[in-house]
Amino acid sequence: MGTFRRGNGGRWAWAAAGVLPPFLPTGVQAHTTFQGLGEFGSGFLHPLTTPPHLLVILGLGLLLGQQVPLRLARPVAAYGGLAAVGLLATASGYHAGVPQAILVMIGLCAGMLVVVAAPLPAFVRPVLGGVAALALGLDSGVDPGTPGVAAAKTLFATGVSLVLWVVNVAFYVSLLPPRQWVQTGVRVAGSWIVAIGFLMLAFALKR
């Protein structure tokens, strides 16, 4: 006859209660208004001033640029399309955002793949780009009270910025010479993204 260990359920519940909070939605990373920049400028700078977003953008850009040959059409189409879907979702009333821990984990995955520096199957880049873009888009909503035109300008600028920075990083990384020490420098940058991601996850767990 099987025995039922009474303590286990409780222990798992405690463990889940300790680990889950950072993965729960906490509200969008609302746009900071930069004095004198207006809605477009503020929206454009938003991804650069939100640490988890920056981590994802850098990780993904390095990963796309590191893969030889540089093929950006499909990943950027998926990335841009799903970023637009995420941003439109926030415009139509989704304000829960994406947990910081999930964004950090996406950046961490991208960083880890940069460290490994192995050629990836063709489908991985669009899939990873799409997931990252959806998360970034959903986490970049404007405050609920923002007027329609201002919100549209801000979200449009954020979308442009999200795509532009990833493409820029990828393009310039792809231009780097194929010398071993340069390529290792890219991997070192990836390892720094992983390290920063680990620490940010720990901070999120601690809270």
């Binding site: 460290v115 991997r187 070192v188 990836g190 390892s191 920063i196 680990f198 767990l205």
Partner: peptide, 22 residues
């Protein structure tokens, strides 16, 4: 020469994370 400095920050950050969460 390059592998060790790639390994160290990642594993150190993992250790740091263990320390942060107690």
């Amino acid at each position: 020469m390059w592998l060790l400095p790639v390994v160290f920050p990642m594993v150190m950050a993992f250790g740091g994370a263990l320390g942060i969460v107690g």
